[in-house]
């Protein structure tokens, strides 16, 4: 059991059942929430997945995926494909399991005791949850950025090359090259190039988060997982991160969890809307935001509840 007794950054079990749409009665009465009501009753629902994403080239394929924290089920029967080379956003109200789903992809949930999973996930065709998967190797193929910027208490340079160092890479030239390349990709090189040897903790929040992105991409991952990367940042820093996401999306597949609908609309190509651990609707962002298949989705993305 990993670090029990210390605080986890997120406690997905709490309030899972109790989070409901905080809706104004006079507004909601007009719309019939067929899917949402079914989910609330605990019935299985058929997610509305748009045709273009049903048979795309999925870098990550999720197939009947369920997850339990102890006795409480947090994710119900998720089926979706994350298309290669595009930015996909996961949206939904708090506690809907979007972070949990993201963390299941690089098996960060293994670190929490009592987590049980069922179903399949594949990264480029190879199963993620097969018994003989090397979790360490898997995580090296997936870069991850967390909600709160978490640079290590070392120099900027050491932070960026950390994934290479743990692989035993000690050639100075290789490390320096990788460091510069990755910091340039993360659009922070100009700001930190003169102080690479100084502590990363001296950077501002936005810079720290870009540093974390640089750290996540230094080992050239197949997918970049972003878990609400802007939620702890101010609007200007958020803007820069969003620009950065658009930039790195040219090279990497990005899966981003966000609370912010505008952000999803701005940066992502596809959007998945989740509710209480189930996928509700999944389609190209433009469709989700302009012509969603379900009234619930429309209500949510226009901010009428959630």
């Amino acid at each position: 059991m990993p670090y029990a007794g210390t605080e986890m950054s997120e406690k997905p079990t709490q309030g899972l059942r109790h989070v409901a749409f905080q809706t104004e009665p006079e507004k909601t009465q007009r719309v019939e929430y067929r899917v949402i009501e079914a989910i609330r009753r605990g019935e299985p629902v058929d997610p509305s997945v748009h045709a273009s994403l049903k048979d795309c080239d999925g870098v990550i394929e999720i197939d009947s995926f369920n997850l339990w924290y102890g006795q409480a089920q947090a994710i119900y029967d998720i089926n979706m494909k994350i298309p290669r080379g595009e930015v996909t956003a996961l949206i939904g109200p708090s506690g809907c399991g979007k972070s949990t789903l993201l963390r299941s992809i690089n098996r960060m949930n293994d670190l929490i005791g009592g987590v049980r999973v069922d179903g399949r996930m594949r990264l480029n065709g190879s199963p993620i949850y097969a018994p003989d998967v090397d979790v360490i190797g898997l995580r090296k193929r997936l870069g991850m950025v967390f909600q709160k910027p978490n640079p290590f208490p070392m120099s900027i340079y050491e932070n960026v090359v950390y994934p290479l160092r743990i692989d035993g890479e000690n050639r100075r030239r290789v490390l320096e090259e990788a460091c510069e390349r990755s910091l340039r990709s993360a659009a922070i090189w100009d700001e930190v190039k003169d102080r690479l040897k100084q502590s990363a903790l001296g950077l501002s929040g936005g810079q720290q988060q870009r540093l974390c992105i640089a750290r996540a991409i230094v080992a050239d991952p197949e997918v970049l997982l972003l878990d609400e990367p802007c939620s702890a940042l101010d609007p200007i820093a958020t803007l820069r991160i969003e620009e950065l996401i658009t930039q790195i999306a040219e090279k990497y597949t990005v899966l981003i969890v966000t609370h912010n609908m505008q952000q999803a609309a701005r940066v992502s190509k596809n959007t998945a809307f989740m509710y209480l651990g189930r996928l509700v609707e999944y389609g190209p962002t433009a469709d989700i935001f302009q012509t969603p298949a379900l009234p619930e989705t429309e209500q949510y993305v226009t901010g009428r509840f959630g």
């Binding site: 990993p2 670090y3 007794g5 210390t6 605080e7 986890m8 950054s9 690089n106 960060m108 670190l111 360490i136 190797g137 995580r139 090296k140 193929r141 870069g143 991850m144 950025v145 967390f146 709160k148 978490n150 640079p151 290590f152 208490p153 950390y162 994934p163 160092r165 743990i166 692989d167 974390c212 750290r215 996540a216 080992a219």
Partner: peptide, 26 residues
């Protein structure tokens, strides 16, 4: 050890570090 923030550990695991590497380096 308990006072080392969990975000540090998670960051390290997220980079593909093993338990021991995380312990030793972070």
């Amino acid at each position: 050890i308990a006072s080392v923030p969990n975000s540090m550990r998670e960051g390290s695991y997220g980079c593909g570090a093993s338990k021991w590497q995380t312990l030793r380096r972070i």
